[in-house]
């Protein structure tokens, strides 16, 4: 056995133990808990049952899932619309400007997103920076009510998740083969046609990857909706949290969590399939 294989086994061994202890075992516990029942003074009673999953079919909880998916999908579309031109500009920027622009995308990660969300409250509130500036400039006569509305929630989500869209898009646009774009032009395609038929398909892996990186975390970011939206909507995250912290119903909280994980898993699987197909197409 060479030093190299010893190192390899050691490295893989540590990761394997880590994953088993902190990913596999907790997830198994959640899955097991989701098939148990709730008790008066015990969080879990060891009586197997699928009642928690049956309760998930209650229109109320389906609505909660729908609200979360809708909010996250809306955020993803906005991030794509804002992020694509931005990533395009970075990729086309000169070699000096590019690293600076990329750095600016990453800078927000240096602060906790919780702190940045609090900062948004200070900017958006009735007597906040935004309103006092607009009032001072005479553009509005009374403060805009932005904080604790859906607008504030969407703004917060887009702001937090935009870098996750921009970075994969940048990577995809940056390695685009511009000779294909020139060929399309030479063959008489107009700018819009070139963009739709050549650039978008070629950068599709970046679009899909960016959308997944925004959509999936977006499903779980209930604290942004709580802080900026005034806790007026129940999202999946709120639902799960409240089962554990307030309702004393661990089996149901676990079932909601398992349902969310499975849904996300299916979406990642679809993504992998489509990424494979997109790559195959590009190679042709």
């Amino acid at each position: 056995m060479t030093d190299k294989t010893v190192f390899k086994r050691f490295a893989i061994g540590i990761i394997a133990i880590w994953l088993v202890l902190f990913a596999l075992v907790p997830n198994l516990m959640v899955i097991i808990a989701s098939f148990m029942t709730q008790g008066e003074s015990e969080f879990i009673v060891w009586t197997p049952s699928i009642s928690s999953y049956q309760r998930m079919l209650d229109p109320l909880y389906l609505q909660v899932f729908w609200n979360s998916f809708y909010l996250s999908a809306f955020t993803t579309v906005l991030c794509l619309l804002i992020g694509y031109p931005f990533a395009y500009l970075i990729a086309r920027a000169g070699p000096k400007a590019r690293p600076i622009l990329l750095l600016l995308v990453i800078v927000p990660f240096w602060t906790s997103s919780l702190v940045r969300t609090y900062a948004m409250i200070i900017i958006l509130n009735a007597n906040g920076l935004l309103n006092s500036t607009l009032l001072g400039l005479g553009l509005i006569n009374e403060p805009l009510q932005i904080l604790y509305t859906d607008t504030a929630v969407i703004a917060g989500l887009v702001y937090t998740l935009l870098p996750f869209m921009v970075l994969p898009l940048y990577a995809a646009i940056e390695k685009l083969d511009w000779r294909l774009v020139e060929a399309a032009r030479d063959l008489g395609a107009r700018k819009v046609r070139t963009f739709v038929s050549v650039i978008i398909p070629l950068t599709m892996p970046g679009i899909v990857a960016g959308s997944m990186l925004v959509f999936l975390p977006g499903l779980g970011m209930f604290y942004i909706a709580d802080f900026l939206g005034g806790s007026k909507t129940t999202l999946i995250g709120n639902l799960i949290q409240r089962q554990f912290l307030s309702a004393r119903d661990w089996p149901f909280g676990s079932a909601a969590s398992v349902t969310l994980t499975v849904t996300m898993g299916v979406m990642i699987w679809i993504y992998l399939l489509s990424a494979k197909r997109a790559n195959a197409k590009v190679e042709v």
Binding site: L60, Y61, K232, T233, R242
Partner: peptide
């Protein structure tokens, strides 16, 4: 209050913020 009542409160609380 019994756990059952607390659960009922929580369900209504979620419903209040969902509809």
């Amino acid at each position: 209050i019994p756990t059952e009542t607390q659960g009922l409160y929580e369900k209504y609380w979620s419903e209040l913020k969902t509809a």
